[in-house]
């Protein structure tokens, strides 16, 4: 279990480091919070729902924000 938790933590760090926070912080609250959720949790489905988008549409936003899928 410890190994899984460390893997999830490493993935979170990669997303945090890759993210363009200047871009993310310039977005309207709903999109900013959805991207922040994705960075922290890595769950694209829930993040897309927070943003009010389809997963594929949210994925385009994620790429603009330079948040990698890990």
């Amino acid at each position: 279990m410890e190994e899984w938790i460390q893997l999830l933590e490493e993935a979170r760090e990669i997303r945090r480091r890759g993210a363009d926070w200047h871009f993310i912080n310039s977005l309207p609250p709903k999109l900013r919070l959805a991207l922040t959720y994705f960075v922290e949790v890595g769950d694209i489905y829930v993040a897309s729902r927070i943003a009010g988008m389809k997963v594929g549409e949210f994925d385009e936003l994620r790429r603009k924000a330079k948040v990698p899928m890990v």
Partner: peptide, 10 residues
């Protein structure tokens, strides 16, 4: 090509 990042652990 995809922008995907694999964890170093993996």
């Amino acid at each position: 090509e995809t922008g995907h990042r694999f964890a170093k652990r993996d």
